[in-house]
């Protein structure tokens, strides 16, 4: 995986230099953007609701037993917006959208469509990478904002309905408001923006370097998802340290 880091960095740099063409490719950017939303919104809802619910279930009874029931909202709120929503949604998008990117670009490579673009003097980075990079870099942070809100709702519902926690929803949210500040949410959103770039660059790189026919497409898809997840987790640690100043 790490032998390709240089190539991926170069691809990212070329895509950044090509960003001014994004406006010309706006139709493809919007198509990709809606594809990401369509493919993922329901899944994001389900996943984030139950993540909030599980965090409340894991922490709530313990905090209530120690007479810290007023801390449940803050713990669930912080865990979701700082860490769980950005990381888990990024892993979900790596699986759903990153794999699709690698498969689509990989099959274009195998079936000579990318060669055809190059013979028409159409830069594959402008045509294929930039629209995907821009759309996922916008869509994933928006999905994460949505996931944070739904995750908090999941936590609130379980905290209220579970007999061992039984905190009124108003109490949950007022504690959450006391603990979670706008900066926490923005940190989570910023992380997801970086993860989106990781997914796009890793997946497009895998697609563009696909070899050995249809079997190679399958290999590229697997590598795109696995490498994205590994890099996301590593980058998450680095970003968390930087953002916490720890």
């Amino acid at each position: 995986m790490f032998q390709n880091v240089g190539e991926m960095a170069l691809l990212f740099w070329r895509a950044i230099l090509a960003l001014p063409v994004a406006w010309r490719q706006r139709r493809k950017v919007f198509e990709q953007f809606f594809e990401i939303g369509n493919a993922s919104l329901l899944m994001v809802c389900l996943l984030s609701f139950f993540i909030g619910a599980v965090i409340a279930l894991q922490t709530g009874p313990m905090l209530v037993e120690r007479s810290l029931s007023s801390a449940v909202g803050g713990v669930v709120g912080l865990a979701i917006c700082r860490e769980l929503a950005p990381v888990l949604m990024s892993i979900l998008i790596a699986g759903r959208i990153g794999s699709a990117m690698a498969a689509e670009i990989g099959s274009m490579r195998v079936y000579q469509e990318i060669d055809a673009l190059r013979t028409m003097n159409i830069n594959p980075i402008h045509y294929l990478v930039v629209p995907r990079l821009v759309s996922i870099a916008v869509a994933l942070p928006l999905l994460v904002v949505f996931a944070i809100l739904v995750g908090w709702l999941g936590g609130a519902v379980v905290s209220f309905s579970n007999d061992r926690i039984a905190i009124p929803i108003q109490t949950f949210y007022s504690n959450l408001r006391d603990v979670v500040v706008v900066k926490d949410v923005l940190n989570g959103v910023f992380k997801s923006f970086v993860f989106a770039i990781v997914i796009a660059v890793v997946s497009c790189h895998q697609g563009l370097t696909t070899r050995d026919g249809p079997r190679g497409i399958g290999r590229s898809v697997t590598k795109a998802v696995v490498n994205s997840i590994v890099i996301i987790v590593i980058v998450d640690y680095i970003l968390t340290r930087a953002l916490l100043g720890a």
């Binding site: 079936y111 060669d115 055809a116 673009l117 013979t119 028409m120 159409i122």
Partner: peptide
Amino acid sequence: AMVFQSGGLLNSLTVGENVGLYLTE
């Protein structure tokens, strides 16, 4: 220009979009 063995048409585009791709891009 090149005519590929498999045609090299972009499968996500219509025939018209393929033919006009160079001029559009």
